[in-house]
């Protein structure tokens, strides 16, 4: 795979000296608040989300997931919810985090565009995180329907962390 396979790349608040290339897709995704990329997969979608910290990468992973389903810029943060998620390793934590959001969407009918992940903490049985979600009721008249997400998978999942950069990669089953 080469860079030409990148569908689009969206960067949050560019920092000085950062070269930004923005690929705009046909359906008109423009510069958004998040920081993630969509990559090729025969049947589904690969997301790579970035952040200065793992928490930020998790926030952007969530935003990317909702961007697959709708245009997240059309979502207003009217309701505020808190969630707690745990997992025995970082991969399981990411899996459970995205799954929690998909379940919330399906059971409450709310969609979200702002995510604040509080510090990911080490516990006796692995890791846990607490997050605040801002969103509102899904309204097909206001929020364009893209494609539904069935599930997050472990397929090709990869989490990398360096001092100032974290990346999470995962595949959504569509």
């Amino acid at each position: 795979m080469s860079i030409s396979y990148v569908n689009y790349r969206i960067l949050k608040e560019p920092r000085k000296g950062t070269l930004i290339c923005t690929f705009i897709t046909l359906q008109g995704s423009r510069l958004s608040k998040g920081k993630f990329e969509f990559f090729e997969h025969t049947a589904d979608i690969i997301i790579v989300a970035h952040g200065e910290t793992l928490e930020e990468a998790f926030e952007n992973a969530a935003l990317a997931t909702f961007e697959v389903m709708t245009d997240t810029k059309k979502i207003e943060g009217e309701s505020r919810e808190t969630v707690e998620v745990d997992g025995f390793d970082h991969e399981a934590l990411l899996y459970n985090w995205i799954e929690t959001l998909l379940v919330r969407f399906e059971t409450t009918g709310n969609i979200y565009s702002e995510f604040t992940v509080k510090k990911i903490q080490k516990t006796d049985s692995g890791y846990k995180l607490k997050a605040i979600l801002l969103g509102e009721k899904f309204d097909p008249k206001k929020h364009p329907s893209k494609v539904g997400v069935k599930a997050i998978t472990y397929h090709r999942m990869k989490i990398t962390q360096t001092l100032h950069k974290s990346n999470v990669r995962f595949v959504l089953d569509i």
Binding site: L26, T42, A43
Partner: peptide, 15 residues
């Protein structure tokens, strides 16, 4: 069975 990825299809076609 799919031949082209979803993103490739979106680049190529318009609904």
């Amino acid at each position: 069975g799919r031949m082209m990825s979803r993103s490739a299809a979106k680049r190529k076609f318009w609904g």
